[in-house]
Amino acid sequence: EPGRAVAGTVLVVHGWRSRTEYMRALIEGYRAAGYRVVSLDLPGHGQSQGRRLNMVNAVDAVRVAGEWFGPFVAAVGHSFGGAVAANAIAGSVKNIPPLAAGRLVLIAAPSSLPAIFADFSRMLNVGPRSQVAMADRVEHLSGRPLHDFTGDRQLAQAPVPTLVIHAQDDREVSADHARRYAGAGGHVRLYWADGLGHRRILADKGVIERAVGFVMHREPSLLH
């Protein structure tokens, strides 16, 4: 909004099978705190063109947002969008430069691509040869082996101050993913938003206050 005092620009990234409008409470929270907010519909989602979404074209979309509107005081992502933000900041995809962001907020975000692939394979009874083929495809697309895509390793290599918000009752992304992120080092703070599951967590007033306060460098002592 022209003429409005801006504390900086925050990037907000939605999750898988979602869109920007579902991030409205977070967006309004940051705007009310004086930030400009940039939020994009990832490829194949919302108003964006395309029929496929993967980590590589998602990180590339975030790269373009950074070139147009960055640098960002923070990148904030929900679910897959959190993993995208973490991978973008860590520069995990070959030939895509790291995203410039001062802080990172991950809400109900998966931290381990190998774990997701393993769960998927168990659910669909995918055989060993097909699992190897999928891992080879990841390396072909991203330029890095599948085992490189773990959040604790990525955040350890890119020590941006990070807040991880997760519900232990999340049935879509296990709380173990949040614990992995928290193991990256002392620059990562973990807040349990229990009872909010995977999606209601986005509309919770307390969660919004934590996410906004962390970017404003107001970190409650309850964080652990």
Score class of each variant (00 low, 15 high):
residue 109 A to E: 01
residue 178 A to L: 11
residue 109 A to G: 05
residue 47 Q to W: 06
residue 135 A to M: 06
residue 215 V to Q: 11
residue 184 A to V: 01
residue 210 R to G: 00
residue 38 V to Q: 13
residue 92 S to C: 09
residue 140 H to D: 00
residue 127 G to K: 13
residue 98 P to L: 08
residue 85 A to R: 09
residue 2 P to D: 10
residue 83 A to W: 10
residue 33 A to S: 13
residue 16 W to Q: 07
residue 129 R to F: 04
residue 99 L to P: 06
residue 211 A to Q: 07
residue 185 G to Q: 09
residue 20 T to A: 13
residue 213 G to T: 10
residue 117 F to P: 01
residue 1 E to W: 03
residue 119 D to K: 15
residue 89 I to W: 03
residue 156 A to T: 13
residue 42 L to C: 08
residue 181 Y to V: 04
residue 25 A to M: 06
residue 102 G to V: 07
residue 144 R to P: 00
residue 169 D to C: 05
residue 39 S to D: 11
residue 103 R to D: 05
residue 151 G to A: 12
residue 115 A to P: 00
residue 74 A to Q: 06
residue 64 V to N: 00
residue 116 I to A: 14
residue 116 I to G: 02
residue 108 A to D: 03
residue 206 G to D: 14
residue 20 T to F: 00
residue 169 D to I: 03
residue 150 T to Q: 13
residue 143 G to Y: 04
residue 35 Y to P: 02
residue 86 A to G: 14
residue 124 L to K: 13
residue 52 R to D: 03
residue 146 L to W: 05
residue 72 F to D: 03
residue 96 I to Y: 02
residue 106 L to W: 07
residue 9 T to P: 02
residue 105 V to Y: 08
residue 2 P to L: 11
residue 216 M to F: 00
residue 74 A to F: 06
residue 21 E to T: 14
residue 101 A to S: 12
residue 186 G to R: 13
residue 71 P to Q: 04
residue 29 G to N: 09
residue 7 A to I: 00
residue 152 D to K: 11
residue 54 N to S: 07
residue 178 A to E: 08
residue 155 L to W: 04
residue 88 A to Y: 04
residue 87 N to M: 14
residue 183 G to H: 12
residue 188 V to D: 02
residue 177 H to D: 09
residue 50 G to S: 06
residue 43 P to W: 10
residue 149 F to H: 03
residue 15 G to S: 10
residue 52 R to F: 02
residue 127 G to L: 03
residue 214 F to G: 09
residue 41 D to Y: 13
residue 4 R to Q: 10
residue 109 A to L: 05
residue 146 L to Y: 04
residue 67 E to V: 01
residue 222 L to K: 06
residue 55 M to H: 00
residue 195 G to V: 09
residue 110 P to T: 09
residue 152 D to T: 08
residue 204 D to M: 01
residue 86 A to T: 11
residue 205 K to W: 01
residue 97 P to M: 04
residue 100 A to E: 14
residue 122 R to H: 12
residue 209 E to R: 15
residue 94 K to M: 01
residue 202 L to Y: 05
